[in-house]
Design a protein around this nucleic acid. Structure first.
Lengths: 178, 178
DNA sequence: TTTGGCATGTAATCCGTTACATGATTAG
DNA sequence: CTAATCATGTAACGGATTACATGCCAAA
C-alpha cells in the first residue's frame, strides 16, 4: 500500500462499523463525510480489491438472485493498519482555490467580472450551510454511540464555520464594491 | 490546452504584470498567492513550454554570462485566453481534509489519539495567522495600484478568516475534552 | 571554499476522475 | 413498462508531485 494513498483508510474506517459492499461504502461516504471527503467508484473498487489482496479485509461474494454482491469485512490486520495511520499526524490539505485565484487576478481587468463569482460564492455558502444544518440534525437520529456522534458533529461544525466565514467574506467584498 | 488545467492561467496572470523567468514566476506565486495556490517546477516549466508553443507567451532566451535565462512575455492571444477564463465561473475547490477524516474516525479508538492532531491544528492555524498578517502588512509596500492591492488583500482576508475559524474550532474541541 | 540562491529541465510515478460497459431488481 | 436504484468493474486520461540531473554566480 503506497504511502500517500488515503482512500484505503476511509474504507477501513467505515468497515470498522459494519461489513459493507463497495456500493454501500460509496453511499455512506457521501452521507457522513461527503462535506469534506469524496471518492469515485473508479478509485473505490480497485482499492477494495487491493485491500483484499493484502488481507486487510475479507470478502464474501454472493450472487444471490443473480445480483452481484461482495460484502467486505475488516480483518485484524486491517484494524491494525487503520489505527497506525490514525495515530500519524494528518497531512495538511492542499488548498487550491480557483475563486481566490480569480479574485487575485481581477485586479487586471474589469471589476464587474468579479461580482457574479462572489454572488455565486454566497449562494454556494448558503447551500452548504443549509445542507450541513440538516446533517447536524440528522446525526442525532443515527444509531451510534454518544462518542461517535460527537466526533461526527465536530466535522460538521468546522464545515459550518468555514461556510459562514466564506459567506461573510463574500458579502463584505460585494458591499464594498470590490 | 486542456479544459481542466489551471496552471496556465496563474502563469498568464502574473505575466500580465511583467515579463518573468520560470524561476521568478515560482517565487512570485509563493509570495503572492502561496496561501491558496502552489505550483511545482515539474509543472511550471512544461506548461511554460506549452504556452509558448501555442503562442500565448513569447520567449527571449539569454545565456548572458553562461547562466541560462528565459524571459517570458504574454502576448495578445495570451491576454485574450486569460480574460476568457477569468469570466468563467470558478470551479468549486475539492476539499479533502485528512484532519477531519481522522477526527471523524476517532470515534473508533482512544480519544487521546485526537489531542495531538488538534493541538497541531491550533499551532498550524496560529502560524498561518502570523504569516498572513505579515503578508497583509507587506502588500502596502508593493508597487501596485490601489485596485490591485484591494484584490490581493481580499484573498489574504479570507485566508485569515478561515485560519481563525479553524483555530477557534480546534480550541473549542480541545476544551470540551473531545 | 563552500553554502545558498539563481536557473532549467526530465522521468517516474501516482492518485484520482471521467467515461465506458453491463446487468438485475424494485417501485410507480 | 419504465425509471430509479442496486451493483461491479475497466480503460483512458490527466494533472500534479517528487526525485533526479545539471551548472553558474555571489557572498560569507
Amino acid at each position: 500500500m503506497s504511502e500517500r494513498a488515503r482512500t484505503p483508510y476511509i474504507l477501513l474506517g467505515l468497515l470498522c462499523h459494519e461489513p459493507m459492499t463497495g456500493y454501500e461504502l460509496n453511499a455512506t461516504i457521501q452521507r457522513t463525510v461527503g462535506h469534506f471527503w469524496q471518492e469515485s467508484f473508479g478509485q473505490l473498487y480497485p482499492t477494495l480489491k487491493d485491500l483484499h489482496a493484502r488481507g486487510l479485509v475479507s470478502m464474501s461474494a454472493s450472487a444471490a438472485g443473480g445480483r452481484d454482491r461482495k460484502v467486505y469485512t475488516i480483518t485484524d490486520d486491517g484494524r491494525a493498519a487503520l489505527f497506525r495511520w490514525l495515530a500519524e499526524p494528518p497531512q495538511p490539505s492542499v488548498v487550491r482555490s480557483e475563486l481566490l485565484l480569480k479574485v487575485f487576478l481581477a485586479s487586471l481587468g474589469g471589476v464587474d467580472d468579479l461580482r457574479p463569482h462572489l454572488e455565486a460564492a454566497v449562494r454556494a455558502a448558503n447551500a452548504q450551510i443549509t445542507h450541513l444544518t440538516a446533517v447536524r440534525a440528522a446525526v442525532d437520529a443515527e444509531p451510534a454511540t454518544e462518542h461517535q456522534r460527537r466526533c461526527w458533529l465536530l466535522t460538521v461544525d468546522l464545515g459550518l464555520r468555514s461556510a459562514e466565514a466564506t459567506r461573510a467574506w463574500a458579502e463584505r467584498a460585494l458591499s464594498e464594491g470590490t
